[in-house]
Every structure is written in C-alpha cells, then in structure tokens.
Design a binder for these strands. Sequence first.
DNA 1: TTACCGTCTGACAGCACTGTCAGGGTCAAG
DNA 2: CTTGACCCTGACAGTGCTGTCAGACGGTAA
Lengths: 119, 119
Amino acid sequence: MKIGALSRRTGVSIRMLRYYEAEGLLTPERTEGGYRDYGPGDEDTIERIRLLGSAGMTLSVIRMFLPCSLDHRQAFEPCDELKSELCRQIDLIDEQKRKLAKSRKLLADLLTMFEASTP
Amino acid sequence: MKIGALSRRTGVSIRMLRYYEAEGLLTPERTEGGYRDYGPGDEDTIERIRLLGSAGMTLSVIRMFLPCSLDHRQAFEPCDELKSELCRQIDLIDEQKRKLAKSRKLLADLLTMFEASTP
DNA sequence: TTACCGTCTGACAGCACTGTCAGGGTCAAG
DNA sequence: CTTGACCCTGACAGTGCTGTCAGACGGTAA
C-alpha cells in the first residue's frame, strides 16, 4: 500500500506518516522506485500511535512501547525501566481523567448557566 | 502578591504567569515600582486556566470562557457562538475521555503481560 | 511521447508552550 | 550606601507537532 492510500484509510496526513517514519515508529518497505510500501499491519500501528499520542504520550515514549504492543511479547532487556515507565504513564492517564472530569463540569456548569439566561 | 509568591503558591512558573498576562488571561495591577501585583482571586483564575488547558483547550479559547466562568454571569454579546463553542469543547472532552480509556486499557494490558512474564 | 497524478526529499514556517539569558531597575536589610 | 533577593523587558532557543512549497522522479494511461 502506498502512502496516499494509507493516508486515506487512516485519516492521518501524508506528512505525519513520513514524520512517524523519521521518528522510527514506522519502517515501511520501499519499492524499486523508492516509494514507501506499507503493509496492512501498519494500519494497526498507526491506530496505536494516535491512541497513545492522544493520551499525551510523546512519540519517543510511544516508540518504547510500540514493539511489544505489536508483537505481544517482550522483545527487549530493560524491562524494569519499561515497566515503571508504563506505570507512570498509566498514572498520568488517570490523573488526566480526573482533570478532564473537572474541566467538563466547569464547562457544563457554564453551559447550563447560559441556557438559563437565554430561554 | 508579587509574581514569585504566586508562582510558589500555584506551582506555575514565573515565565508562564507573564505569558498568561501577555495572552490577556491575567491582568495584575502594577506597583509604583512596576512590579506585578496579583490579587487572591488570581489564584483561582490560574487554577481554571490550568484545568481547561489540561483539557486541551488553547489559551485563546480559554480566554473566551474565562470572564464568564469567573464573574458567574454572561458579560458579553455573541452568546450563540460562545455556546456552540462550549458544546464543541464538551464534546471534545468526551471524546478525549473515550480515547483515554482505550489508551489506558492498552497500557494496562501491556503491564499485565509484563507481570506475567516476570513473576 | 506527452500528460498527469502520485511520490520523493529537503527546507521553511507556524503554533503553543516553556526555558534561559542579558541588561537593567526595585527594595528591604545590614 | 552597599548587598542581595527579587523583579522588569526583550529576545532567542527548543520541543512536538503539522502544514506547505519547491524541484525532481516514478508510473501509467491516452
């Protein structure tokens, strides 16, 4: 699959697909002509990248977890660091959820206030 | 209250407090000597800014909502735009919560996988 | 072969922050 | 009055994206 097709299928811009590759998150094959040639599994990878990215993880952090999240096995040595980093990220997400709930309440209160004043 | 004290009390860097002012989110008084002089209410404002900011709202969007969120009344005309923007932001938060839940599951699964492989 | 679309690389630009440094002023304590 | 802590402005730098443009090549259909 060429980059344009993948972009259309995933909704991720061509620019970002190339950026992911530059950052080492994606390593598509190349055709003889030099075109990037993505496999079907890359779609999953991209979904994971977007998911983790939307959780506030930086690309370099995502890069740490991506291989094992794909292979579904541990494929490297420094497991303790990775594990603690994993815990840290989960804690961050939980805190983010709390903040999100508070923000939502703030905005929702604002909204009901608006509704009340413009019947 | 001078900027250093406010920074210590809120945990927000002096740099950012000045930035908030430059962006129109905070307008502290000035002493004769030219020092910023913050009131106690500014602490609340900053908490709101951080909260909404952590929900992914940009400073210019926060600036829209800040006055009414503080005054607890509507203090401007273009209420319809504001209201729809408000709804939009709430929707964004809800979507973010969904993504966060997915991300958390991904990471948690990874973690249990790790635990299983290193008893 | 000529169009034309898709792709390549590389570079520049912009946003929203956030840090840091320089050069200079304020102010309270000794 | 001097010292030292604190503050001021302005500017430059860097991160993590993300878009866009230029100039060139690949591949294919008429």
